[in-house]
Amino acid sequence: MPLKERISHIDEVRSWQGSIRLEGVYTAGVAGERWLRGLQEGRIYGTRCPRCRYTYVPARLFCERCFGHLDEATWVEVGPQGTLTSWTRVHVALDGQRLSPPRCIGLVRLDGADALLVHDLLEDGTPLRVGLRVEAVFRPPAERVGSIRDLAYFRPVP
């Protein structure tokens, strides 16, 4: 389309404003229910598939690789320490505003896990690098509600 045919001012044509507004209420699921209860207790669980030898974090009800049921016997505690697999420093928010200070996000392989967990990463002056040892820091017990936010952030192991 030639440039001059484009609509540069929406009020030059008839238009209506509309938004798609939907509310969602999500259940955590069979495995998620128990996994979040674990976080509330300050523990991070995974489920380890005995056939595939793969440990899912967050814990899953089934193994997507072999389709086996990951039952009670497959629940294992992982972490709380792990290894930083990648990290980023985010300078722009969703709405385009500059973030000051920037926010740091880490991808962590908890000890004993195969799957990675993404969460906030505390910057304490330690130079960030892939391979850095990090540990989970939980909110104080009284503030925990059974949410991914009960885990406050990861920080470099002192």
Partner: peptide
């Protein structure tokens, strides 16, 4: 209570 993937897995398995 099941999530969508959990429901799908139950039917599929």
């Amino acid at each position: 209570l099941e999530t969508g993937p959990e429901l799908a897995w139950e039917a599929a398995s």
